[in-house]
Nucleic acid binder design. Sequence first.
DNA 1: TCTGGGGTCCTAGGACCC
DNA 2: TCTGGGGTCCTAGGACCC
Length: 426
Amino acid sequence: MIAIVDCNSFYCSCERLFRPDLDDKPVVVLSNNDGCIISRTDEAKKIGVGMAAPYYQNKEIIEKNNVAVFSSNYNLYGDLSMRVMDTLRSLIGEEQVEVYSVDEAFLELGMISENNLYTACKEIKGTVEQWTGIKVSIGAGPTKVLSKVANRLSKKNKKESQGVMVLQSVHEIKDALERTYVDDIWGVGRQYAIKLHNLGIDNGWQLRNMPEEWARKNMGGVVGTRLIKELRGVPCIPMKDPLEVKKMIATTRMFGKPVFELSEIKEAVATYVSRAAEKLRRQYYAATSIQVFVVTNGYRKEKYEYNPQSRYQHSNFLVATADTAELIQYALPLAEKLYEPGLKYLKAGVILGGLVPDNSIQANLFVHEEQHQKRFLMDAVDNINFSNRDDIIKYAASGLKRNWKMRQELRSKRFTTRWNELYEIK
DNA sequence: TCTGGGGTCCTAGGACCC
DNA sequence: TCTGGGGTCCTAGGACCC
């Protein structure tokens, strides 16, 4: 059996941890640039705040109801996420936990007897909540897809389920799938949901009973057949090896306000390269390719038209690197190639690909000793930036004025990752 | 004035090989 | 009038996820 542990309104819960006065009040957290609402509590949902909705469209209702609003504080959420995951690992074993996202993890529960599943899940939930202060919901079933179905229902009826739902018997599974619209099934997105409804397939049980061949033709090939099998209780999406390496690392941002000048775009690209390279080094990888892209608001002249268009350029390197200076040298010419005067630029991004573990470069005969020195330099820079302030040491290419920087006006303190932002008790 | 960021997997099609 | 079969690698694009 597989379980999924999911933190309730994760970002909001993190904010509440240091603001207990908000425990029963509506809270929302905004995306970068304070653009969209990306986390909301049940209280906020109840008064009609939309999920993933633009902030400005909800401003009125938010102000009227005294909703607490935060800009996203990823240092804080990342640290608390790690605590939740560490707790899970210590409870059921490192090998049994697959971290699926910042607020979710799959658990392999094969070692727990079927009769004890519910109790075990309750215990896991209780311990995580007690140790970290973050509330979670747990769903369990014979496959990942069914565990997600269970998890969703457990959240929907919190009182009745007490945040834990286990699907074991055929009868339980049938009942759960009949109560779940296809739209709410993991792996069915907007496009497929429309297609399914048009065919009269509305709930999970109906979908489960479709032939695999049909799914192969109509729901993205093998992806579709896997989904049907999982709904039938046949595991097809295995647990991932925790040691598996990433395939790409991206840093992309909307600008705080639209940008027109090449110089500003180059500054932003250099800055994003620095961020991405930091992530790369933190995981002991190096990259062999880079992709730079920009998003413009399109060619149409109509006012306020939101019609984003992206353009890409990429290049490959002969020798993998994790050196910021070198990566900047690859990236800037790409930015120049992308630039076309007169357009309005909304966003830029950098994607590092072809990742390899960086010890494989050190083994490369053709790498000069100097490369290793650069790695020491980078480590020193990373340490200083991390322990003091982001970008206290940075490359000149990434700019000093940074007019394009994103807005983050309502961010809470980084209580758990910065010495000078520790929680104060007076 | 204002709409996030960071990922994964799969497929089709082209270039190339013997 | 006629032109194989089998394979790999790469990229772009589409769908999905949180």
